[in-house]
């Protein structure tokens, strides 16, 4: 009964979901550790995509090859944002931190608009149209690479947080800022590291996206809104949840895009509200950011 077309839709959904997952993991990592939502996360992705574009444009660097440079670059941007903007505001109300990142988002978006104009830019690669066919199914090569790359980065982040001393220190400070500082965890450095890592995720995502997408100054808005839904679905601050959430939203997008293309964002929003109503702690129930639910 299930047609090949439908399986094709599911596959493309999962592949797309991998990228969403990576972007969202970056966002949720930052929130989980520093308790700040980086509203400029999408603009960081936009920067990464432009960097990938210019590197290809001027030096002919393949975007896949630029991924490591992009990760490093975005790590630095993220760490600098933490040190320069968020750190001085740590004791301020959460609203001030939100506004600072919103301000950053507006600034980056409009500076990009000023510098690079509103044009949509794409790159051409030899492998752009190549496909892997299994029976009647065809999988675009760049999409597959994007999924594999995103998953690899996700695994690296997981491994890092779980098995390295620094990773564990980050998790410790995420759980209890005061206690971790008392046992000698360097809060400033760990926060910079966490913000940097979260931003490096969109660095990687930017490089992986460039061969299948186009870049323009407001491209980040679309991806960051998707990431918000994913992060809430996965449970705020829950990395595993964000990965699962990313895949789910990828599938939802593919399926709703197949049946009601123009309304897929409305479908996201409906999901978003439903999660808030019925399971605000996310799929795995490990989300943070709200304490005991005080309801009427």
């Amino acid at each position: 009964m299930i047609s090949y077309t439908f399986i094709q839709v599911l596959i493309s959904g999962v592949l797309l979901g991998g990228i969403y997952a990576l972007i969202s993991i970056g966002l949720t990592l930052i929130f989980g550790v520093i308790k700040v939502i980086n509203f400029a996360h999408g603009e960081f992705l936009m920067l990464a995509m432009y960097f990938a574009y210019w590197m290809w444009h001027y030096w002919g660097v393949d975007p896949y090859a630029s991924v490591i440079v992009l990760a490093a670059l975005l790590f630095l941007i993220g760490a600098a944002t933490q040190r320069g903007i968020i750190q001085p505001l740590l004791r301020s109300p959460a609203s001030m931190q939100i506004f600072a990142t919103v301000g950053l988002s507006v600034t980056l978006q409009n500076v990009a608009l000023f510098l690079w104009k509103a044009d949509y830019r794409t790159i051409q690669t030899a492998y752009q149209a190549s496909k892997i066919t299994i029976g009647e199914l065809a999988i675009g090569y760049p999409r597959l690479v994007a999924f594999v790359g995103a998953t690899a980065m996700t695994i690296i982040i997981f491994w890092f947080l779980k098995n390295t001393f620094t990773g564990r220190a980050i998790r410790a400070i995420a759980q209890d800022r005061m206690a971790a500082m008392l046992v000698g965890v360097n809060q400033k450095r760990m926060y910079m590291l966490a913000f940097g890592l979260g931003s490096a995720c969109v660095g990687v995502a930017g490089g992986l996206l460039m061969p299948i997408y186009y870049v323009f100054p407001t491209v980040g808005t679309y991806f960051s809104l998707t990431a918000f839904v994913v992060v809430v679905l996965g449970g705020m601050g829950d990395i595993r949840g964000a990965w699962i959430g990313g895949i789910i939203i990828g599938l939802v997008e593919a399926i709703s895009g197949f049946y009601v293309p123009a309304l897929k964002e409305a479908v996201y929003f409906a999901i978003f509200i439903l999660i808030l109503l019925f399971r605000p702690s996310g799929i795995l129930g490990l989300g943070r950011g709200f304490e005991e639910v005080a309801q009427e």
Binding site: I37, A94, I98, F228, V232, M236, F272, I273, L276, P280, R288, G289, F290, E291, V293, A294, Q295, E296
Partner: peptide
């Protein structure tokens, strides 16, 4: 009913 940045995101 919740704490956290949910209203902003919504």
């Amino acid at each position: 009913r919740l704490r956290g940045p949910f209203y902003t995101l919504s």
